[in-house]
Design a protein around this nucleic acid. Structure first.
Lengths: 142, 142
DNA sequence: CCGGTAAATATGCATATGCACTTATCGAGT
DNA sequence: ACTCGATAAGTGCATATGCATATTTACCGG
């Protein structure tokens, strides 16, 4: 008998997650285009807005991202002046990251654009389902 | 008053989707490493296993991916001999894609590895929740 | 047949992703 | 102080992602 993979595309968790992430990211990036932020860059700004100084590794963990990936994702943002980094005085290995004033200002401008994308997203998935859905995504990511 | 973005990381659909996609993809790629397939490559093989000949654009639509992205993702797979492409006899613009015998054989070897990754995934998200979760992801991707 | 518009795909550029490996630093035990 | 294992971060390589733009082909109205 022939191999039948016909159920795999819809069953595969990885495939469905990646496709949804691609499609949703494109919509958020379209919304954020006026401020010139990519989807991942917006996430980094948000993550850094929570704390004054964050070690690179801790930030990568929070984003569920390889340290080496984050290292490179930071570059265009630092070049643009949105982020600053400084060595930890107590541990010279650690690179502490922080938002600049410019980064904070841009985040403020980006916020309503994000809000709009978020609302458009909830036109597709009823917002009441989101807390539950988020929890499932976090379980998958954990 | 200061801007407070403290709710954004957990609320942002885009962020949660991307993070989950990253983490889950890494686990599938680890499982698929013995056959040397990346997560997206496995998805392409599966998608092509459904039909004998698929136009590039139609495949891209099915994957929720830009045609230009797919164009390049195909390259290493064609170079490796997993896929073949030929022009459509009725429309010289169209590139028809198909699995090679080697591609089909590799998919067969990859299948149990995928199955294992899938099962590990369901250790994190109860499988009973998957049909519903999949539907939500498809709504987000649509 | 010709000209113009639409469609399918490819290219240039920039960012994103992570593994294997390397470098620098820390801290504990001697 | 010294060595050594552990930890934080960076590099080289390869694939992934998509927008703006270019190229080729199709099709339709004249």
């Amino acid at each position: 008998m022939l191999d039948d993979f016909s159920n795999v595309p819809s069953d595969c968790v990885m495939f469905n997650l990646r496709r949804a992430a691609r499609m949703v990211s494109r919509r958020y990036e379209e919304a954020l285009r006026p401020v010139g932020l990519r989807a991942g860059q917006f996430s980094i700004l948000i993550a850094l807005s929570q704390q004054p100084q964050v070690p690179l590794g801790a930030l990568a963990d929070g984003l569920g991202m390889e340290r080496t990936t984050l290292t490179r994702n930071l570059r265009p943002m630092i070049r643009r002046g949105l982020l600053a980094d400084s060595p930890d005085r107590n541990d010279a290995r650690v690179r502490l990251l922080s938002l600049t004033d410019e980064g904070r200002a841009l985040l403020k401008r980006a916020s309503p654009l994000w809000q709009k994308a978020q609302e458009e997203t909830f036109d597709r998935l009823p917002e009441a389902l989101w807390p539950d859905t988020r929890q499932r995504l976090q379980a998958l990511a954990g």
